[in-house]
Design a binder for these strands. Structure first.
Lengths: 235, 235
DNA sequence: CGCCTCTTTGAGCTCAATCAAGGTGTGTGG
DNA sequence: CCACACACCTTGATTGAGCTCAAAGAGGCG
């Protein structure tokens, strides 16, 4: 883990994230006061479950997973954070406590790490920013609700939904892209859906053989999007 | 559905809800400007999925369920709203749209129905209120995350967790109360967990026979809390 | 080269879903 | 007051999707 001062490029990356879009450069600079840019390597940890919440982060490149470990030893992935996503911002509204989740990089990534003091001075006092945070939070909640709705559907539909969501999310809804830019393993898909790797593999191997998807270097390409869309159309 | 002007009593009920606690009476009155008190009967609908979001609500008595219907015809209960809980407040931050869920009363209940205009004028402009909303939202998200964590555990643990949560929530953490004050059916438990009624009944019948719980008039009493706590202790 | 992560396949088993049938209690209208 | 509908609860038999356990192959990295 490697920390720098912020470059102009990094700020530019944030311009089309919903949290920062249409904000003046001056404003963005106050929101990022005393922040540091952190480079993370593949599988490197940003926050560990139990760490003190005296800073939070914004993803500026790559992707990270938010993990909760269960007593039984298996992990559940709560969220895939991609460019523009805040991590732990919700925890800044309450007094310093401990991170309830661990945050681990998937492939190399960059995040801006923002101290609690900056949040308290420049975020928590700004109505517009609080509303934006609210929206973020709301859409993340909608995701979790969707997960809950999918509880009862067969595994192949769950996987289809996840892949489609990731495809859209990782490419900012640029619909002609077919490769999921987040490097993701079958284990991570399983952890995200709360099922076993073997089950995920059985489904996805079948899809690979039928040219519906193909995997290269942990990037999944979706060859027949129609097939997947059709699977989840009644959900 | 039966609508009144607000009584002082109703406002009093809100004083120990996290959203309103420690606010001056004057402040509360501005937050509730142009609101109306609505009495709902058992199974009566407050909002229908698809209704326009030009008002939201706060529960002042009783309980309501937030439901999403799936294409397959079964319902999923997203949340049990009890006294002090806001319903749909998060939707006020975005332009008027449609309710994504239906809200139905469980037993008789009262809610304060607050128009969008009041939110925009007196809620969205107030840093303190926005922060409180954020916290609310955060704790609701934590619930959904917990649900996700429970995905893989056996059914009896899921039910145990739900009953314990409801017991705590419905009695404001008053720990010597043993009856869940929300009237709830096995079907609703099943809908909340995303499982079938029959499975819920099989587990709960067993518990009833073993004097762990007992049900009277849709109120569930927990006779052996230890047993349930023990079931979920490693989750 | 050996370690580690990730993927794969097979065999057997289990928990909860499904389907089917019946029971109980409450409200409602003739 | 009866009967009829409706909401809710119950039990049994059967089935199957996904889990568990086991063993092994492929690729990358120090």
């Amino acid at each position: 883990m490697n920390s720098h001062l912020i470059s102009a490029q990094e700020i530019k990356n944030l311009n089309n994230s919903p949290l920062f879009e249409k904000l003046s450069e001056v404003k963005i600079n106050t929101l990022l006061m005393n922040s540091r840019l952190i480079n993370l390597k593949h599988r490197e940890t940003l926050f560990n479950c139990g760490d003190r919440t005296d800073s939070f982060a914004i993803v500026t490149a790559g992707a990270l997973k938010l993990i909760k470990s269960t007593a039984r030893g298996d992990d559940i992935i709560m969220y895939f954070a991609t460019v523009g996503d805040p991590i732990g911002a919700l925890l800044m509204n309450k007094p310093t406590t401990e991170y309830p989740i661990s945050v681990v990089s998937m492939g190399p990534s960059n995040v801006l790490c923002i101290p609690r003091s900056t949040f308290e001075k420049n975020w928590a006092t700004d109505v517009d920013v609080l509303q934006r945070l609210n929206s973020q939070l709301y859409s993340r909640m909608t995701n979790l609700q969707d997960d809950k709705l999918m509880n009862k559907v067969p595994l192949n539909q769950k996987i289809a939904k996840l892949l489609i969501n990731l495809l859209l999310k990782s490419n900012n809804n640029n619909s002609d892209e077919t490769v999921i830019s987040v490097p993701i393993t079958r284990q991570e898909i399983a952890d995200s859906l709360g099922v076993t790797v073997e089950s995920v593999i059985r489904t996805m191997s079948d899809w690979s053989q039928n040219q519906i998807i193909s995997t290269f270097d942990k990037k999944i390409e979706i060859l027949k999007l129609d097939f997947l869309l059709n699977l989840i159309k009644e959900v």
